[in-house]
């Protein structure tokens, strides 16, 4: 049994969180959030993997061919869509923050009152 992909998950999560905490720019912070979310893709696809199995598309293979779990792959798709939606919203909030306060540094934004 190998756990390497799951260690990668924890690593991506930690790196992304570190980026969010130390970021000095809202857009950079949004990208760090995307990194955090990317760890869930690796986790989902890692959980559903079966050693030696193929993709669950029965176009040119028979039903009895071992294939990986399609449920987690569908969940990863949902994950991507949610990430796109969240990123779009956060970007528009960042634009408004810049318009209002003239800065995108979270440190400076925290000390400002509009």
């Amino acid at each position: 049994m190998t756990y390497f992909p799951f260690i990668v998950v924890a690593w991506i999560l930690a790196v992304g969180l570190y980026g969010i905490v130390t970021s000095r720019h809202l857009v950079h912070q949004i990208i760090c959030l995307i990194v955090v979310q990317s760890s869930t893709y690796v986790l989902l696809l890692g959980v559903g993997y079966v050693t030696g199995a193929v993709a669950p598309y029965y176009w040119d293979i028979t039903v009895h061919t071992p294939a990986v779990d399609p449920v987690v792959q569908a969940l990863a798709l949902t994950d991507v869509v949610v990430e796109a939606a969240v990123t779009a919203l956060l970007c528009s909030v960042a634009i408004q923050a810049h318009k209002r306060f003239g800065t995108l540094d979270p440190q400076e934004l925290a000390t400002m009152r509009g």
């Binding site: 049994m1 190998t2 756990y3 390497f4 992909p5 799951f6 260690i7 998950v9 924890a10 999560l13 986790l43 890692g46 959980v47 559903g48 993997y49 079966v50 050693t51 030696g52 669950p56 039903v63 294939a67 990986v68 779990d69 399609p70 449920v71 987690v72």
Partner: peptide, 25 residues
């Protein structure tokens, strides 16, 4: 804590099922 939790999973490549297998079938 995350690593502790992840190590409780059934190992990479050892997907236990049953949902994926049932749907594939």
């Amino acid at each position: 804590f995350v690593v502790w939790g992840l190590l409780g999973l059934p190992g990479f490549g050892h997907y236990p099922g049953p949902y994926g297998f049932i749907i594939n079938r």
